[in-house]
Design a protein around this nucleic acid. Sequence first.
DNA 1: ATCCCTCTTGACAACGTTGTCCAGACCTCC
DNA 2: GGAGGTCTGGACAACGTTGTCAAGAGGGAT
Lengths: 328, 328
Amino acid sequence: MKDVAAYAGVGLKTVSRVVNGEAGVSSDTERRVQDAITALGFRRNDSARVLRKGSTASVGLVLEDLADPFYSPLSRAVEEVARAHGALLINGSSAENPERERELALALCARRVDGLIIVPASDDHRYLEPEIAAGVATVFVDRPPGRIAADMVLSDSADGARAGVAHLIAHGHRRIGFIGDHPRIHTATERLRGYRTAMADAGLSTPDAWVALGGTAPERVRGAAVRMLAGPEPVTALFAGNNRVTVTLVRVLAEQERPVALVGFDDFELADLLSPPVTVIAQNPAELGRSAAELLFRRLDGASDEPRRVTRPTRLIARGSGEIPPSA
Amino acid sequence: MKDVAAYAGVGLKTVSRVVNGEAGVSSDTERRVQDAITALGFRRNDSARVLRKGSTASVGLVLEDLADPFYSPLSRAVEEVARAHGALLINGSSAENPERERELALALCARRVDGLIIVPASDDHRYLEPEIAAGVATVFVDRPPGRIAADMVLSDSADGARAGVAHLIAHGHRRIGFIGDHPRIHTATERLRGYRTAMADAGLSTPDAWVALGGTAPERVRGAAVRMLAGPEPVTALFAGNNRVTVTLVRVLAEQERPVALVGFDDFELADLLSPPVTVIAQNPAELGRSAAELLFRRLDGASDEPRRVTRPTRLIARGSGEIPPSA
DNA sequence: ATCCCTCTTGACAACGTTGTCCAGACCTCC
DNA sequence: GGAGGTCTGGACAACGTTGTCAAGAGGGAT
């Protein structure tokens, strides 16, 4: 910028004014500066700008896995909102690892992002307290924060699971298995809670053998499903705790001789083209992302009221797999 | 940092040394500084650091759509490599819009990212010349750069399409339709070229009615497919130019009375569970991302040889839909 | 003609960090 | 006891930008 000023024969501040489109520069001078800028290929250094201004016009997004199809639309929605507010999006995957979530979030804070949207992998976010105190707006999405108060946007996991399991019960099932993600994950336990509620509401018991929580690794899910489908009192229906589990169960059930009903949490592409088409409890990930981003920019615009908790309803989409009657 | 220094009763530089783990600080002093840091909740301001050091330890990724399942693993792979090099990833979607690609890339440059990985939406990247001259390493992935020389990582689109169409021909098809993305997109025309090559190799003609290029909007793809399947000389097989097209075609073909063979470019989740399972030409998007990121960090480590062009082979995965014999 | 107002412009400090350079303390060896 | 070396610590400038302030030019009203 100094060079531009020298080249155009004007003061430093005048160049700054032109670059930022500030008023108070004669059109003649402005043109001289513009010429100098193009001649020298000048581009403003945003690092210095950030340092001077204090705000970075960027927000950070920490999610579980950038490659999980559930988070893709969420991430995209956040990006769109950020773009509408002139902000860039920096994101990273925690790989469901609390330590990595922490590293990533703190690295983003060191970068002085204006705000942070987090899909928590950890259950203790007190490490963010100094950052929040320092003014970094923070919104949690998909799962609640641990041990701190902050804005959050959640789907109604418990009620969604309850509705899904009730749907199976309504179609005659009495022995229903639940296979979900790791119990450390809030949504996993919430969905399990919904499952238990639905079963209890129908006066059904839920023996331990019908419940498996422990991550979405295909091998583990497969093992759990096979165990539940074997034995003297096999389950006649399965409820899958998230999209990863559902996909694995679709594969397992395709290998079974007798039909087994299936309802999965999370919708996924092509669910309607499988045979049978898969009945799901659908969330709207893009909507979650959009809400979270809007909550964030609301804070950045100065809102300082109590932390909000936004809960989004889920929607049951009956496609076939959840309407299979019990066999045996 | 000034505050920390005052609190610990040491000089500014000493705090800097502690924060950066530099040698030359007695363990006693170091502890005093550490205490001050935790007491004050100090976190280094990376903006200032960047300003001073000149490198940001961050790379930018501009791709077409963060929510496209093809790009998710690519993005994730780039992230992993960046992480291994201690860099953060800033990314954004161009939405297949050249102007937006440009804006995004230049915004990232203004942020002084160390390097840039771009899935081009535009066919003219001369706007990046000053940036590249200024030292921003740039790698193009999935599609080649336009009118500049730079590293690139591509799948062998033409040969993949050729192999896929040859596969259909080998199964007896003579009237094969091609439905692809917008002709502005390099991979789309390359795949069309592969289609024509395979057809020509077999001595088959390719009337215009059998070729549709024009974007992946479901309506358009559906319309093209329906037209090709109607009339006196309907096609007996379709080749889909990418995963978006394939998915739409799967839907269209499911509604057809007579079976139509289908081979799609790009693998996708659950392709093996559809009926019939979908035969595809598989790329390895994660591998593309990883290669591109490694090429980038090679440059950042100082490599200054000629721009490289890395071509990855594709792989035909026969699953059923591509082995259906011609009917009618 | 004087005063006041507006418009344009530039000098300067500051943002928070790190590289350079120097000073003092302490130690070792002659 | 003095010379030379090592270790520790700090003062200061610089990175590139923007906010503050003030000064000069020009014009209109009195």
